[in-house]
Amino acid sequence: MDVRVRGAVPPDPFLGAAALFETEHDLSLPVEVRVRENPEERTWAGHYEDRHVLNISRKAATSAMARELALHELSHMARYEEPHPSHHQSTDEALFLALSGASVERRKVLQCYQIANHMKDVYADDITLSVGPGEKLVTFFESQLAAAVADRPRDHPHPDSERLTPGSDPDITAVNAAFALAMCERHGLVDDGHRLYDLAHAAADDAPGVDLPAFTRLFRSLARGPSESQYRKSLVDAARLYAVDSTASGPAAAD
């Protein structure tokens, strides 16, 4: 696998990620690692006809999580090349099906895209965790969720803002917590007494309109090899669960 690091950062984490990845998988296209100067920029993969691009901030590229972040993005690239429905299904189409006829706040529509990204991450990390250890991922989930719970805005839970971060809205923080639990349970990374459960319960208490157990089940039970229609249904179900079925007074009653 051809990996080229463009930027004044140590290449070892990226080459190490590629070596781990190649124990079970491969990519047809070369990978260009592009280091960004903005420390707040998220890590993400771009896909082109002749290459994949792994975009990462300098801060992330020199962090203790650099190898794991790179491995995660290589897994997204593999899902794109398969091609896996999660990485080719139109999110816009699924949201249209899910939200048609409903009156939904703009912030919730925007956050449905984050939920769709979580679903892509489930399938990427099925690869990531098949070739690499999960301890750092658990620690990452725990630290991110702890920070989001600590930073939650209690007086104004839904600020009128274009920029939504994990800590800016208790509802999406609860969904993020469900995602973290689901990934840990899907791959047997934590036991029942892990601190992640306490943090998730705290996030759920701050977001009574979000059904955290339902989201945890949804993410955890995503079919390993879904058809396009199966994946579309899961995406529609997730959007409806967040934007339509959940209410300010509490989650929809379970069947």
Rank of each mutant, 00 (worst) to 15 (best):
R4S: 15
G7W: 08
G7Y: 06
G7C: 07
A8Y: 01
F14T: 04
A17K: 07
A17H: 06
E22Y: 01
L29P: 07
L29T: 09
V33I: 15
V33R: 04
E37T: 15
E37Q: 07
P39H: 05
E40R: 04
A45P: 06
A45T: 11
H47N: 07
Y48Q: 06
D50A: 10
R51T: 02
V53C: 02
V53N: 07
L54E: 01
L54I: 08
N55S: 14
K59I: 05
A60H: 14
E68R: 15
S75C: 13
H76N: 10
R79Q: 15
E81V: 06
P85H: 07
H87C: 13
S90D: 10
S90R: 11
S90H: 12
D92K: 12
E93T: 09
A94N: 08
L95F: 13
L97Y: 14
A98N: 05
V104T: 07
R107A: 12
K108T: 00
L110V: 03
Q111N: 12
I115Q: 04
I115V: 13
A116P: 00
A116R: 07
A124D: 05
D125H: 15
G134P: 08
V138Q: 02
S143R: 14
Q144G: 14
L145Y: 08
P153V: 02
D155M: 06
D155A: 12
D160F: 02
D160M: 06
D160W: 08
S161C: 09
T165D: 02
D169W: 06
D169N: 09
D169M: 01
V175M: 11
V175Y: 09
N176P: 01
N176H: 13
F179I: 04
A182Y: 00
M183T: 11
H187A: 00
G188I: 01
L189F: 00
L189A: 04
V190T: 15
H194S: 08
R195N: 11
R195Q: 14
R195K: 13
R195M: 11
Y197L: 07
A200S: 15
A203N: 11
G209W: 15
V210N: 04
P213K: 01
A214H: 10
F215P: 03
T216K: 13
F219D: 05
F219K: 13
P226N: 14
P226C: 15
P226D: 10
V236N: 10
A238C: 06
A239Q: 09
Y242F: 15
V244Y: 00
D245R: 08
A248I: 03
S249E: 11
S249L: 05
A253D: 02
